[in-house]
Design a protein around this nucleic acid. Structure first.
Lengths: 187, 187
DNA sequence: CGGCTTATTGATCCGACTCAACGTTAGTGG
DNA sequence: CCACTAACGTTGAGTCGGATCAATAAGCCG
């Protein structure tokens, strides 16, 4: 964060989190990302990066200079359109998060979060029901706008109800259908 | 919402709100927009619009077919870059909103909202301290993730403290500096 | 006028925050 | 090798901000 906008980055591998911050030192986790995702597109048209990116494990990046990026984009309409699609998807992702933060309680936020992860893992040909969380309880709470303690409590409650098995960062989703109902329950 | 992605739209004049919804009928107001803004960019790469746009007064639009849009963008790098910048700004706007919803209480959200409007009006050469709200209390509450009643109560409280004058939708900001402190107060 | 939407205010209740204690694991240095 | 420290995760008790429910204005329009 604060660095001049000279490069954008592509994640080669490893989980990361991105955060924005205020002058007062508050931090908001904006997203968790994995291999293949682009970082830095959100500051096109400004002079410096506005996000902090932190590794949640062993990671590697691909650094692309802004000139090279603009060259690629302007020469190849397919790439250009791909970038539009990526940015557009990022907008939609943030908007769904807004809906989650604005209209759902802690239990719904957390189950929706787990189901979202499940889908991501499934797309990467990993297990959709049995995975490790790269991020801490504190990061999850920050991301979802709830306290770390509440994250723990909801995990415990979901486990008591048999919906998940939670052993620290190793999570099993035992009943995707019922979890889906919890995530989307009307207020 | 739900219409096939055939056009994107540019607001000619008049205030509008955009919303997303869930199958359960919940609605989340995502933003308020005025003349000059583009609507529809957030669904590039998908098959249909995912937002509802509703007028909050007399409005007019410019409709641009997707083919025409793509033609313009691919022929003129300046336009292309401009679109990147617009989408990038939209991402940043949503992220700031996420920070607001995730880390700030009702009073901070509402004062930040008023100050944001103030800046917008100021950019349009309108008064930064004396303006009409195009949107209802209910819309504001929905947008900020708080109840309509809470919006009213905070308005009343701010008025009691002399920070604003509120007569229904006619708002005066009496002390921008103190309002700024309220908006950014540490938790 | 009456019906309708919007705004305001009060009373009550609950979900989630805060504060605090404690267990666990990993890393550090004597 | 073990004491010490630092993160991280979990759980409990108490509190409070804001939601909900309810009633009452206040503007708008047919």
């Amino acid at each position: 964060m604060g660095q001049p906008l000279e490069y954008i980055y592509i994640i080669r591998g490893g989980p990361v989190k991105t955060c924005i911050g205020t002058e007062e030192g508050q931090v908001q986790v904006i997203g968790f990302h994995a291999a293949g995702e682009l970082l830095g597109l959100n500051v096109l048209g400004t002079s410096q990066h506005n996000r902090d990116v932190r590794a949640l494990g062993t990671t590697s990046f691909c650094e692309v200079s802004l000139e090279r990026f603009e060259e690629l984009v302007s020469k190849d309409p397919a790439i250009q359109y791909e970038i539009f699609k990526i940015m557009s998807a990022e907008i939609r992702r943030n908007q769904e998060l807004l809906l989650l933060l604005g209209k759902h309680n802690a239990e719904e936020r957390l189950t929706a979060f787990l189901l979202g992860l499940s889908q991501q893992f499934s797309k990467r040909n990993c297990s959709a029901t049995d995975f490790y969380l790269a991020m801490s309880r504190s990061d999850i709470g920050n991301y979802l706008g709830i306290a770390e303690e509440t994250v723990c409590r909801v995990f415990s409650r979901l486990e008591d109800e048999g919906l998940i098995s939670s052993e620290c960062r190793h999570i099993k989703l035992n009943d995707l259908k019922r979890l889906g109902k919890v995530a989307r329950r009307l207020p």
